[in-house]
């Protein structure tokens, strides 16, 4: 039986140093993060600046336009201040998810600590920028307009809990999608080898899970992009709250 969880193992490649007694190790996860960043840098820096774009320049320009349009439609023109942050998040998640689809590779966002770190980065950006830009008016975010005074305390409490639940749902969504997708893929792929060991009849039966594995890979490719996009849209919506609280 092939272990479907084994693909998420973290292995230490080498040790960078120590902080206190805590070892700072360079793991396979860090290696794939470096590879993702290198690929993005290669695409964005090495794309060229011709008037008539080539293939790679087109890809770079399309990804810029795509993220810029997402920000403008969700957070308004003022949201473009956060373009570097949002573009980095989108490209990092999208490219690392795409790398994860390739067999034998490691998927960074299948670990909740990674997605939680990204979501908390967005959360604290919203919090710090919201207070910096609006001062105490940022608390208007928790007070919806047109609510009768006698249920206001209850609504404010619910709004505050809803606000603090954002980083959790933001991170769990990306993590759960990638984890579940990769486990499903692995389970169906292991059916192929298990049936294949049963001789001629098994080979005929193995065609079914093999076809399903191919179909699931296509679906996972869609999910990998879609989850990066959903993460980006939510980031834009949260940043919109920091720019214009209390509508």
């Amino acid at each position: 039986m092939i272990d479907p969880i084994h693909q998420f193992n973290i292995d230490k490649l080498f040790t960078i140093g120590h902080i206190g007694n805590q070892e700072i190790a360079f793991t396979n996860s860090s290696a794939y993060m470096v590879v993702s960043v290198a690929l993005i840098s290669l695409l964005m820096i090495g794309a060229g600046r011709q008037l008539v774009p080539g293939r790679f320049q087109s890809m770079a320009e399309i990804s810029y336009e795509f993220v810029a349009n997402t920000i403008r439609s969700n957070a308004g023109a003022e949201g473009m201040k956060f373009f570097p942050l949002i573009f980095s998040l989108f490209m990092f998640i999208c490219v690392s998810n795409m790398i994860g689809i390739i067999p034998y590779t490691f998927t960074i966002s299948s670990h909740i600590i990674v997605t939680a770190a990204l979501a908390l980065l967005v959360f604290f950006t919203v919090l710090v920028y919201g207070f910096y830009k609006n001062g105490l008016k940022f608390f208007n975010l928790f007070v919806p307009s047109g609510i009768p005074i006698y249920i206001l305390p209850l609504v404010v409490l619910i709004e505050i809990i809803s606000f603090f639940s954002r980083p959790i749902s933001h991170s769990v969504r990306l993590f759960a999608n990638m984890l579940a997708g990769h486990i499903t893929l692995k389970v169906f792929a292991s059916f192929v080898t298990m049936l294949g060991a049963m001789g001629i009849a098994g080979w005929a039966g193995a065609v079914l899970p093999l076809g399903l594995t191919v179909a699931l890979t296509a679906l996972e490719l869609l999910v990998a992009f879609l989850q990066a996009y959903v993460f980006t849209i939510l980031t834009c919506i949260y940043i919109n709250d920091a720019i214009h609280p209390g509508h």
């Binding site: 809990i161 639940s165 959790i168 749902s169 769990v172 759960a176 959903v230």
Partner: peptide
Amino acid sequence: MARGFRLSSELVAGVVVGALIG
């Protein structure tokens, strides 16, 4: 599946944060 995860994670996150605060 993506939509299901999206909505369920929203609900679970709310309950978890409420329980933690309590």
